[in-house]
Design a protein around this nucleic acid. Structure first.
Length: 318
DNA sequence: AAGACGAAAGTGGTTGA
DNA sequence: TCAACAACTTTCGTCTT
């Protein structure tokens, strides 16, 4: 595949200790080419530094020495309208009145935002750890949430739903998508609501997210079903063939992933029922059946499936 | 009895006038 | 803003193992 603008990095992969680390400038990601680990990324670039080290000595109460992160409610960036020293520079009473009014409002607003962020980020951490999401996703979600608050997008929506929406978006961006169902279970928000806020927030913040790839779901579903790695790669193989003949467009990615896994499990004699697959994928058996029908028809896998049924017929487990 | 299959009706979201 | 539309779900009856 064409990989433009790759730059070799001097870093070492924390996962496999490989030095084969490249930075994709266009996508803003640093990737290990050996194990595929995304080491660090910064998907949204609003050209503002997020790893903020504050050198303000007076702030040492907040945290000792550590870099402020997005998941802390205040990065030390709170606004302040003037100080009392400025006050004495002002001439008229009118100016002084105005000065105090502005300052009062600014304090009110920013403390409200800070309070909100503090609570929201706690919730975000809770949900994120429930879903065992990587730190990078959590940071991304926090960044999205912060922007949403600053733009006043939380108004009229529950804080929790915006948190869930931000997390969902962050997962998608990092290509480790969770289903809306999983997000719903973790956050206690209805998946309809999460979907709504997700769309709203991404639209308002101009966050573009490419349609999720069914293959991204395979590893998770496969391990939930305790399928062998070979079956998993078989499923990916099937997905690739399906994509090449445009079987995947327009369909829900989870349904396709589920069907591919189901077929792969049949082919490899590691059978799972439609119901089992449907449950982990969060779709119904009917959807799997429909996708499955298309798959064996279009990919001409019918005979192969029949054969493997006979072949494994005598082999029983447990 | 459980799983697979298919038909029919319902739901929520997208699209285009 | 409304209606048509596609994908997906729910429900239920029938067939197969």
């Amino acid at each position: 595949m064409p990989t433009p603008l790759l730059r070799k990095s001097i870093r070492e992969c924390p996962e496999c200790a490989s030095k084969n680390i490249y930075r994709d400038v266009e996508r803003g990601e640093t990737i290990c080419r050996d194990c595929g680990l995304v080491i660090e990324d910064r998907m949204i670039d609003f050209s503002q530094e997020w790893r903020e080290f504050d050198d303000d000595g007076g702030e040492s109460k907040r945290r000792t020495g550590a870099p402020a992160s997005q998941t802390q409610f205040d990065q030390g960036l709170g606004t302040e309208v003037g100080t009392t020293a400025d006050f004495y520079k002002l001439g008229s009473d009118r100016d002084r009145d105005k000065f105090f009014r502005l300052r009062k409002w600014n304090i009110r607003i920013s403390t409200a935002i800070e309070r909100n962020l503090k609570v929201a980020l706690a919730e975000l951490k809770r949900v994120s750890s429930f879903l065992k999401l990587p730190k990078s996703v959590e940071e991304e979600a926090a960044r999205v949430y912060r922007l949403a608050v600053q733009k006043g997008l939380v108004r009229g929506r529950s804080m929790e739903s915006v948190v869930a929406g931000a997390l969902y978006a962050a997962c998608r961006r990092h290509e480790i998508p969770r289903t809306l169902d999983e997000m719903g279970e973790a956050s206690g928000i209805e998946k309809k609501e999460i979907g709504r806020t997700y769309r709203f927030v991404t639209r308002e913040l101009d966050i573009s997210i490419k349609p999720s790839n069914p293959a991204d779901y395979i590893p998770r579903f496969a391990s939930a079903l305790k399928l062998a790695p070979e079956t998993q790669s078989k499923a990916v193989e099937i997905l690739e063939m399906a994509r090449d003949i445009e079987l995947t467009s327009g369909r829900g990615p989870t349904g396709i992933a589920a069907a591919a896994l189901y077929v792969a499990s049949l082919l490899r004699g590691e059978k799972r029922t439609q119901r089992e697959v449907a449950d982990v994928a969060g779709v119904t058996e009917v959807t799997i059946r429909n996708r499955y029908k298309e798959l064996i028809k279009r990919l001409k896998l019918g005979k192969k499936v029949e054969k493997s049924k006979e072949g494994k017929g005598s082999k029983k487990k447990k």
